[in-house]
Every structure is written in structure tokens, then in C-alpha cells.
């Protein structure tokens, strides 16, 4: 894979494909910026806001990949349910908003940078090495297709989704109880 060749074959900016590429990049940027906000925000509510931005970016990508049902579910479950549960937990939790100044965990400082570098390198290398083949469209990603797939091939995954929700609810309850009994 020679990047220069790919660039020369790239479609013009004002063609349909070119615009789609720009839209894709915007979605990517949204996701990454959301993630950065979520990780680096000093206030917890801002972190939730970042998470929402990140989820919206991911949902947009699902839509872009021709799977509107999954995109909408991403919005409905992650933004509508998980994020609100998190926000509730924050409101019920202890009110201090000060940055923690205690001893840092093992993955901070130089070790953290090394770890991050390794992960980034590994992912990047994998992405560049893989020979991406455009797959034929299996189905339209409609409700019916997904329903059948979910309840047959992917029923295990489907159940795991509900565990995600369960965990978020239990987490909220745990934090709420801690805030009370302090």
C-alpha cells in the first residue's frame, strides 16, 4: 500500500464520493474529540457531555455504514439510557469536584506514555497491514434482517447488550448508596 498512490486516486472534493469522505472525516473527528473531552474533562458532567459527543460520532458512523437501525439503537441506548444513568449517578454521588491529588496509578507518567505508544503503534500497524477488501452488501440493515440475525446468529451478543445496561444501572445504584452512607 503506497499512500501517495491512494491520494492520487482519491475522488474530487465536490463529487458525491468526495463529500462522503469529508463527512466520514467529520464523524471521525467528532468521535475522537468526544473521547478526548470525556477523558480530560475536570468536571464530571462535562465528561458525560464528551461521552455523548463520542457516541453521536459512533452512531453517525453506523449510519454511514448503511446500518440505520444500529445507529438509532446506539443513540437510544447509549445517549438516552447509559449517559443519563451516568449523569444521575454523578448527581447522586458526593458533591466534590476537586481534582484528585492522591498517588497516581501505575499507568501514569512515562509508563503511561509508553503504553499508549505501544497500543497506538500496534493498532496502526495492524490497520496498515490488513488488506481491506470491500465486502459485498449482505443486506440492507433493515429491522427485519437485524431482528432475525439478533435472535438467531447473534443471540449471545444481544444478551450481552442487556448486561451492559444492567451494569450501568447497578453502578449508578452503588455510587448513589455510597453517597448516602458516607
Amino acid at each position: 500500500m503506497n499512500p501517495t498512490v491512494a491520494l492520487s486516486q482519491a475522488p474530487g472534493l465536490l463529487t458525491a464520493d468526495g463529500l462522503a469522505g469529508v463527512v466520514f472525516l467529520i464523524m471521525l473527528a467528532t468521535t475522537i474529540i468526544g473521547g478526548i473531552i470525556a477523558c480530560n474533562a475536570e468536571r464530571l458532567v462535562r465528561a458525560v457531555a464528551g461521552l455523548i459527543v463520542c457516541f453521536i460520532g459512533v452512531a453517525a458512523m453506523y449510519y454511514y455504514l448503511n446500518s440505520p437501525f444500529v445507529a438509532m439503537m446506539q443513540m437510544l441506548i447509549y445517549v438516552g439510557a447509559v449517559c443519563i444513568t451516568i449523569a444521575f449517578a454523578i448527581m447522586l454521588a458526593s458533591p466534590e469536584e476537586n481534582k484528585k491529588h492522591g498517588p497516581a496509578g501505575p499507568l501514569s507518567g512515562p509508563l503511561g506514555i509508553v503504553t499508549a505508544g505501544l497500543v497506538t503503534f500496534g493498532m496502526g500497524a495492524m490497520a496498515l497491514k490488513t488488506d481491506f477488501i470491500p465486502m459485498p452488501k449482505i443486506n440492507m440493515g433493515t429491522v427485519e434482517n437485524i431482528g432475525v440475525e439478533l435472535l438467531t446468529t447473534y443471540s449471545m451478543v444481544f444478551e450481552l447488550v442487556s448486561i451492559v445496561l444492567l451494569i450501568s444501572i447497578i453502578g449508578a445504584l452503588v455510587i448513589a448508596r455510597q453517597g448516602r452512607s458516607k
Binding site: I52, A59, M72, M75, L76, V79, G80, C83, I84
Partner: peptide, 9 residues
């Protein structure tokens, strides 16, 4: 409904 959930946020 997905977008309505944004409204409550």
C-alpha cells in the same frame, strides 16, 4: 425517540 433522548440531556 433517539433524538428525543438528546432533548432530556
Amino acid at each position: 425517540f433517539a433524538f428525543a433522548s438528546l432533548g432530556s440531556m
